[in-house]
Simulated scan of single mutants.
Amino acid sequence: MLTTTWEWIRLLGFLAYFYFTISIIFGCLRKSLFVKSHKNLIYHIHINAGWLGLLTVIAHMLVLVLDNYEPYTLIEILIPFLADYQTIASGLGTIAFYLFLIVLMTSDVWIRTMRRSIWKNIHFLVLPAWLLSLIHGVLIGSDTANGLIIIFYMVSAGFTLAILLARTIGHRKKKGTAPNHNL
């Protein structure tokens, strides 16, 4: 049973990273050449995991304000690198949040008002956002010393990178040998 705000903060941060990882994996699978069936299911997992990640990271940020041990102010949460606690790691988390927010807003809210090429370029901001969230979790997580947590980070990062690489290679083979920047 979770009893302290710090435990809730860590759980919510961990879950946000997990949901964003799932969203990225299923987003890559959705457009991959090796997935022929269940594209609609894959799409819905991709979308729902992204929104669950956003809701979870917002809860993570709100509980940080409530924490009595190492409380954050709203300004420290919303403006990168202003936090007193773990300034760099906290700032990376804030930047990751804004990048995820931009991707989700342009995907579901503003997608109909912009050119597809612009949307696609914005959508790929999810990759640096995910990487920043991984670095944030590893650097600031109080449970990063736990072997199972390290294994989870390594497996999730390895799997995500493998899926991304497979998708990239598949698209290059489909288009010929010329690099394709419109994955």
Rank of each mutant, 00 (worst) to 15 (best):
L2I: 11
L2G: 04
T3D: 09
T4S: 13
T5C: 02
T5K: 06
R10L: 00
L11V: 12
L11A: 13
L11Q: 09
L15W: 09
L15V: 14
A16G: 13
A16P: 04
A16I: 14
F18C: 05
Y19L: 13
T21Q: 08
I22E: 02
I24S: 11
I25E: 11
I25C: 13
I25R: 02
L29Q: 14
R30D: 01
K31D: 12
S32T: 03
L33T: 13
F34L: 01
K36G: 03
K36A: 09
K39E: 00
K39M: 10
N40A: 11
Y43N: 15
Y43D: 10
H44C: 00
I47M: 11
I47G: 08
G50A: 14
W51Y: 09
L52P: 03
L52S: 07
L55V: 09
L55H: 00
T56N: 03
V57Y: 04
V57L: 03
V57S: 12
I58G: 04
A59F: 05
V63S: 01
V63E: 04
L66H: 03
D67V: 12
P71E: 06
T73D: 00
L74T: 11
L74D: 02
L74S: 01
L78S: 04
I79Q: 00
I79V: 15
P80L: 04
L82G: 00
A83R: 01
A83L: 07
A83M: 01
D84Y: 12
D84N: 11
Y85S: 04
Y85V: 01
Q86Y: 10
Q86H: 13
T87I: 12
I88V: 15
I88D: 15
S90Y: 04
G91A: 12
G93Q: 07
G93S: 07
T94I: 03
A96L: 00
Y98K: 14
Y98C: 09
L99A: 09
F100M: 13
L101I: 05
S107P: 07
S107G: 11
W110G: 06
I111D: 07
I111V: 07
I111G: 03
M114W: 07
R115T: 06
R116W: 07
I118M: 07
I118A: 08
K120Y: 07
H123D: 01
F124R: 05
F124I: 09
L125N: 12
A129K: 01
A129Y: 13
L131F: 14
S133H: 09
I135Q: 06
H136M: 03
V138H: 00
L139K: 11
D143F: 00
T144A: 10
A145C: 01
N146P: 01
N146S: 10
L148A: 15
L148S: 14
I149Q: 13
F152I: 05
Y153Q: 14
V155T: 10
F159I: 15
T160Q: 06
T160K: 04
L164R: 04
L165E: 06
A166R: 11
T168H: 10
K174Q: 11
G176D: 03
A178L: 14
P179C: 02
